[in-house]
Each structure stands twice: as C-alpha cells, then as structure tokens.
C-alpha cells in the first residue's frame, strides 16, 4: 500500500475560482462581479490502491475539488497528473478516453440516475460510449454481470430507477462507475443519503470492490466516522484549503490543526457519550464570497492570535507524512485543553 513508487494521482496547486459575469448594470454601478475561490491552491497525492479520505463541512470545496480532479469542473489553475499524464492538458478526445479510467460515484442516488432510462441503459452507457461492447446483447450480458456483483440481478435490467430503494440505486450508480473497469474513483459522499444499515452495506461493497478490482479511491465525506473507518490517509478541508493531511490513524489520534480537533470533538459518539469535553466552535463557516484574511480559520478558532489574522500559515510536516497549516503548531496546543482552561478560569 505504501509503495514509494509514483503516485497514481498527483494534484499540484489546484485552484477553482467561480467568477460571476461582469454585466453592464454592475459595471455602471461600479460593482465587481463575485469571485469565489472554491478550491484554493491545493496539492496532494493518491497512491495506487489507497483510499484518501477528504473531509470537510458543506461549502468547504471538497466536492468541487473532486470534480476538478476529473475535469468535470474545469480547474482555474494547477495541474492534475493521472498515471503520468497531465489531465488538465488533455484534448477533448483524450479526455474522453481518460474518463474510462477515472470515474465518480455521486451522493444523491435519486438525482444521479436519469429517471427516464432503464437500468440496462444507465449502466451500459459507458460500454457504448467507449465501444467496449459490440452488440446490445453483449451490453446486457456485461451489465447483468456487474449488477450481480453489486448485489442486484439480471431481472432488474429493464426497470426504471424509481422502482428501486435508495440503497439499490446507489448500487446501480456504483455499477455504472465500475463497468468500464476504471482505476480511480472519486466517491462523492456516496453513503450520506442512505439509512444507517444500508450505509454499512454500501461501505462494505465499496471496500470489497476496491480489493477485487484494484481500485484507488478519493473518498469525500463530511462524516468523520466513515472516513476514519475506511481511509488510509485523510485530508481535512476548510474554506477551499487543505488544513491537515496525513495517515488516518495519526491524524485522528493526534489531530494537530485546531479545526480538525474541533471537528472530531463535535461528532456524537455512541461509545462514549459526553465523555469528552466538547469544543464549541463559534459561529459558522464564513462566506466564501468574502473569506477572512490570514488564516481562514481564525474567525472561529479558539487559539487565534494576532498573526493568524494577518498571515496565512504555511503547511508544515508535523510527523512522517503528516502535515498541518497552523501558526501555533510549534506550541503543540490542544484546543480542548485550552477551552477547558478558559472555562475553568
């Protein structure tokens, strides 16, 4: 798993800026169009066969990042290299071929399947698009096989998405992503919309398929328990930036960034209710339209000091393969203790 060889995916300084259109009315009124840095100068690597968990709250840019990597949303700046090829520089034709090797599983099992298409058409689409099956019969046979594998069967071929439950739909979405035998899958919150017992079924399925088919996942989720359970390494995002990244065990056992610390303390825990002191973050995610200066977390950070408001921290190595971006790393503070200390006083 930890081969020093070249990573399968390497992302360098990737940014995605959404720019509003400059309209005449705005120009007359002297209003500049909005510009949102959804993803800001993000770099990371995913090794072959690994699961990189990407965690963050809604609006932090994690889904945009996942889509920018696949060029579903065109990145504004930066490079994405997949198996030695620069994805960002690919022509439309080459990109289409690349799509066979990089796939995505979506969050919403209801919105991600065309309601007017049959399962055979939905799952068989990649085969047709990439010329992987010659005849309709061949398409149907291949689709039936993959359906079988994800826990459905050939009897489902001619049904429509609305005839399935959420969990089954997610299985259809997984079958569609896997039928072209890709190497890399972006899993964009694939279990967030599902019931607990179904969620576990899908997680199990995704892990089995990964081993069987030698897949590599970029697993996006807001659920720290899910990420903690299945990822080898984890990256924590806040307002378009990765604030901490490292081996899952290390990051979750010893989170160094105050945001990671508060995120972990906010998760309700069945095993130890109320055992830990909760770090209550002040306020909400600032508007990405008007991000804070300096460290973007300073408006909510219990540890913020003057320098945090002025300068953006640079990511530093805190342990082997574990990096974090915080001005107060060297002081080795724990948000929990600090907050407890303040409350005690």
């Amino acid at each position: 798993m930890t081969s020093p060889a070249k990573p399968l995916l390497s992302v360098e300084n990737l940014s995605k800026v959404y720019q509003g259109r400059q309209t005449l009315a705005n120009r007359l009124a002297g209003v500049r169009p909005f510009s949102v840095k959804a993803v800001n100068d993000v770099s990371f690597e995913v090794r072959r066969g690994e699961v990189l968990g990407l965690i963050g709250e809604s609006g932090c840019g994690k889904s945009t990042l996942g889509r920018a990597v696949l060029r579903l949303h065109e990145p504004t700046a930066g490079r994405v290299e997949f198996d030695g090829e620069d994805v960002t520089a690919l022509s439309a034709g080459a990109l289409k071929d690349m799509r066979r090797r990089m796939q995505i599983v979506f969050q919403d099992p209801y919105a991600s399947l065309n309601p007017r298409s049959t399962v055979a058409d939905i799952v068989g689409l990649p085969l047709r698009l990439h010329g992987l099956a010659k005849t309709t019969q061949e398409v149907r046979e291949t689709v039936a096989r993959i359906l079988e594998r994800v826990g459905l069967n050939a009897a489902h071929l001619d049904r429509y998405p609305h005839q399935f439950s959420g969990g089954q739909r997610q299985r259809i979405g997984i079958a569609r992503a896997l039928i072209s035998h890709p190497e890399f899958i972006v899993c964009d919150e694939p279990v967030s919309a599902l019931d607990v017992s179904i969620q576990a079924q899908i997680i199990q399925l995704l892990l089995e398929l990964k081993d069987e088919m030698g897949l590599t996942y970029l697993f996006i989720s807001h659920d720290i328990s899910v990420i903690g359970y299945l990822s080898d390494r984890v990256a924590v995002m806040y307002l378009g930036e990765i604030v901490e990244m490292g081996p899952t065990d290390d990051v979750l056992a010893r989170p160094r960034h105050p945001y990671t610390q508060s995120l972990m303390s906010a998760v309700p825990d069945v095993d130890a209710p109320g055992k830990h002191q909760r770090v209550r973050l002040a306020g909400e995610l600032p508007s990405p339209l008007d991000p804070p200066t300096g460290c973007k977390f300073h408006t909510r950070c219990p540890l913020a000091i003057d320098v945090c408001r002025r300068e953006a921290p640079i990511s530093e190595q805190v342990a082997p393969g574990h990096q974090a971006a915080c001005h107060r790393l060297s002081e080795d503070l724990s948000v929990r203790e600090t907050v407890a200390g303040v409350q005690a006083r």
């Binding site: 889509r67 696949l70 579903l72 990109l95 289409k96 071929d97 799509r99 066979r100 796939q103 995505i104 979506f106 969050q107 919403d108 919105a111 991600s112 399947l113 065309n114 309601p115 689409l125 990649p126 698009l129 990439h130 979405g173 569609r176 072209s180």
Partner: peptide, 16 residues
C-alpha cells in the same frame, strides 16, 4: 442535475 453530470463523467458527448 447529477445524472447529466454523471453522463459527462462517463465521457458522453453534448449531443448524447
């Protein structure tokens, strides 16, 4: 909608 994005992710053309 996501299913349109899914088709794009699979490499479908604009016409399709």
């Amino acid at each position: 909608l996501e299913y349109v994005e899914a088709a794009r992710a699979l490499g479908a053309s604009s016409g399709h």
